[in-house]
Design a protein around this nucleic acid. Structure first.
Lengths: 230, 230
DNA sequence: TCATGTGAAGCAGTTCACAGCG
DNA sequence: CGCTGTGAACTGCTTCACATGA
């Protein structure tokens, strides 16, 4: 019963926040991204039954920098054993905790076009600790239809339904001209993390983190380097 | 004609590359990304009939930094008029030229699952100067079927079909375990730009630029900051 | 001895402050 | 006078080199 949307009833404000002594503003997004890559890599090693790994082995295997791995981890504690390396399973746990993916994170998708629909069905968004719990669109032909695990609702219901569904992260997959209004509605719904696929620059809002993924811009970056061989 | 006196046939690879004096290695990917955002923003202004704009107006309108806009542009020439600002249409042309999107760029998609299929139909990948011209998958149920504008072909044909189709950029949308082999095949096909959606770290290859877009990693970045309010 | 963890050095990217020009 | 274009200061990120400890 995926789309029966009960919120995580136990917590009054719903939003824990871990009480480790880490100031999130002091950690660079670049570092966080790499932690996530380390986690992905370590999980791969774990699946292969590898129990110990050194920063250098990790670096060689996944084309990373061993110094950087150690520096990145050092910001959060001492996870390794000198002369030996890291315990794979142990480090996986630590990283998952650090990244805050040791709990279920519910996703609301706004915009059920090509991309939104694909994301609703995307394995990475419906496995592990991520779970799509709501989908919104304005097209009457889509409202009420089931896509992936969710039933599409009109965007006017974002402010009420997003909180009810327990969504922590919103995926913005609407056309550019609809982005500002949807972002506004998500703000009113108390959403504090947005993955924005719309080709628009959203105004920074205190307490809300936005990650922009404009696919056209990625293509244009490649085009630039393509236009100038060597 | 720029200064280089190349005899006929001295460019055997047929890959133009513009002969401006810009060393692509000297330009940061961060800068290139921002140029792309400026272009997107300026096009929006142009559609609204706005003809002149100052760096500060741009900055306010799109939540950017005016100094940074000027610094970024300064790397490539002098495009503005002191005391006035920039001519919107003019700067659009300049930026499109700089980014190398003033010509058709053909895309080959490898992996026709949820994401690959959505991308094949994605407007931004089939408009302006981008055009999906090939799609590959290994699933026999998909081979021969039409998705978006292309007929799906088996991945074993990448090495021959990708060059024939004139594809300049490959979109990797296969599962992690298939990424390495597909990347290899693309290398043999002479592809020098890859947009990688597979959750795998591809080995750097000289002359080939890879841009990674791991959607799970983007979610985990948001999760990190979400786990630590304030 | 081996690999981690870390100050210090080096490099890159951003912001500042203003000279230069229309 | 206003806004661009830019050296210079600054901030932050990465790499180096080595002390530390299993």
């Amino acid at each position: 019963m995926p789309s029966s949307l009960s919120p995580p009833g136990s917590r009054p404000r719903g939003r824990a926040g871990r009480a480790d002594g880490i100031d999130p503003g002091a950690v660079s997004p670049l570092t966080v991204n790499r932690l996530s890559i380390y986690l992905r890599s370590l999980r791969q090693l774990r699946e292969q039954g590898i129990e110990k790994v050194s920063s250098q082995q990790l670096a060689r295997r996944f084309h990373l920098s061993s110094t950087q791995i150690r520096k990145d981890l050092a910001q959060f504690g001492e996870f390794g054993t000198r002369g030996v390396g890291y315990d794979v399973a142990d480090l996986v746990e630590h990283l998952a905790g650090l990244l805050g993916v040791d709990r279920v994170l519910r996703l609301a998708i706004v915009g059920m076009g090509n991309l939104g629909t694909a994301l609703a069905r995307f394995p990475a968004f419906n496995s592990g600790n991520f779970q799509v719990v709501a989908g919104f669109d304005n097209d009457p032909a889509k409202i009420g239809r089931r896509i992936g695990a969710v039933i599409v609702r009109p965007t006017s219901e974002i402010a009420t339904l997003a909180p009810e569904s327990g969504a922590a992260i919103a995926i913005l997959a609407v056309p550019a001209e609809a982005a500002a209004a949807a972002y506004e509605a998500l703000g009113r719904a108390g959403i504090r993390a947005v993955l924005n696929f719309a080709p628009a620059t959203l105004p920074p809002r205190p307490g809300c983190r936005v990650k922009n993924v404009d696919l056209r811009i990625h293509l244009e970056e490649l085009a630039f380097f393509l236009a100038r061989p060597e």
